[in-house]
Amino acid sequence: MTTTHPAGPPEADEDAILADITAMIAEVLEDDGLDGTDGLDGTEIGTQTRFGRDLEFESIDLVTLAGHLEARYGRQVNFAEFVASMELDDIIELTVGRLVEHVASCLKSAGAA
C-alpha cells in the first residue's frame, strides 16, 4: 500500500495530457490535405486555445481528434458523450484546457474504479 499515484495512472497528469493532445492536434491538422495548412504552423497551443477560432478546426476535425483520443486512452474517454449536451457551435468553440480537464477526470475515475 505504498502507491504514490492515488488518483490514477500517470497519464492523468494534466501536463502530460496537454502534451498528448497537442501532438494529436498537430496530427489532425497535418492530415487535413485540403487547406494547405501544415500541422501547427508555429501556433502555440495552451489551455486557452480554442479549437474553432484559434486552430480553425471544423467539426470533422474534432471527429478525427475523438478517434485519436480513443486510440490513446481507450473507451473510458468518450468524446461523443462529453459533447452530447452541447450545440455544434459550442463544441467548435471548446478550449483545449476544457478537453484536458475532461480527459483527466475520465482517467481519474477509471483509475479509481
Binding site: V63, A80, L88
Partner: peptide, 15 residues
C-alpha cells in the same frame, strides 16, 4: 456537410 453533423447530434443517442 460531413458525418460530423451526425457525430455531434443524434449519433451518440442512437448508440
Amino acid at each position: 456537410d460531413s458525418l460530423a453533423s451526425y457525430y455531434f447530434t443524434v449519433a451518440p443517442e442512437f448508440a
